[in-house]
Amino acid sequence: MAHNADANRAAKRWLWLLVIPWIAMIWVPSYNKVEPQLGGFPFFYWYQLFWVLASAIITAIVYFKTKTRSNSGASAGDAR
């Protein structure tokens, strides 16, 4: 039981990674500019596109680090 509580605490620490993209996108003055351009796109647009991709990667990392391992240890009798 104590091991399960420690695992839950460790899993909750990974959830803090999800705050990074939120802060990056909510703080508009940090990216509300035209320069530097990348491929002809103003900074405002490619910065947001970058965070779409980065958020997907961060979400995947958090998912795999926090998903329960009990599903992988299910017995054969539970399968349908």
Results as ranks from 00 to 15, higher is better:
Glu35Gly: 06
Trp16Glu: 02
Lys33Asp: 07
Ala76Phe: 11
Ile61His: 04
Asp78Glu: 15
Gly73Val: 09
Ala2Glu: 01
Gln48His: 05
Ala76Tyr: 07
Arg9Trp: 06
Phe50Ile: 00
Ala5His: 12
Lys67Leu: 00
Tyr45Cys: 01
Val28Tyr: 08
Pro29Ala: 01
Gly77Ser: 11
Thr66Ser: 01
Lys12His: 06
Asp6Asn: 07
Arg69Ser: 11
Ala5Asp: 12
Val52Lys: 04
Arg13Met: 15
Tyr45Asn: 11
Val19Arg: 02
Asn32Ala: 11
Ile57Ala: 15
Lys12Met: 14
His3Lys: 13
Phe41Tyr: 05
Asn32Leu: 07
Ala56His: 11
Trp51Thr: 08
Arg80Phe: 08
Ala7Lys: 13
Leu15Arg: 12
Thr66Ala: 02
Trp27Cys: 10
Asp6His: 13
Arg13Gln: 10
Lys12Ala: 13
Ile26Cys: 08
Pro21Val: 02
Asn4Ile: 08
Trp14Gln: 06
Phe50Asp: 14
Val19Lys: 02
Ala5Arg: 03
Trp46Lys: 05
Ala60Ser: 12
Lys33Tyr: 06
Ala74Ser: 13
Ser70Gly: 01
Val34Ile: 14
Trp51Met: 04
Ala54Thr: 12
His3Gln: 14
Glu35Gln: 15
Ala79Asn: 14
Gln48Thr: 05
Trp14Thr: 04
Val62Trp: 04
Gly73Asn: 11
Val19Pro: 00
Arg9Gly: 13
Gly77Asn: 09
Ala11Tyr: 07
Gly73Asp: 14
Ile61Cys: 09
Thr68Ala: 04
Thr66Gln: 01
Tyr63Lys: 07
Lys65Cys: 01
Ser55Glu: 03
Tyr63Ser: 06
Ala2Cys: 02
Trp22Gly: 03
Ser75Ala: 13
Leu53Gly: 12
Tyr63Gly: 10
Asn32His: 03
Trp14Asp: 02
Asn32Thr: 06
Thr66His: 02
Lys65Tyr: 01
His3Met: 09
Ile20Lys: 05
Val62Pro: 07
Ala74Met: 10
Ile23Gln: 06
Val34Asp: 14
Arg9Thr: 06
Val62Gly: 01
Trp14Val: 10
Leu18Trp: 10
Pro21Ile: 06
Lys12Cys: 09
Arg9Met: 10
Ser70Gln: 03
Pro36Arg: 13
Gly73Leu: 15
Lys33Ile: 03
Trp46Ala: 01
Tyr45Ala: 03
Phe64Leu: 08
Trp27Asp: 15
Ile20His: 04
Lys33Thr: 07
Trp22Met: 07
Gly40Val: 07
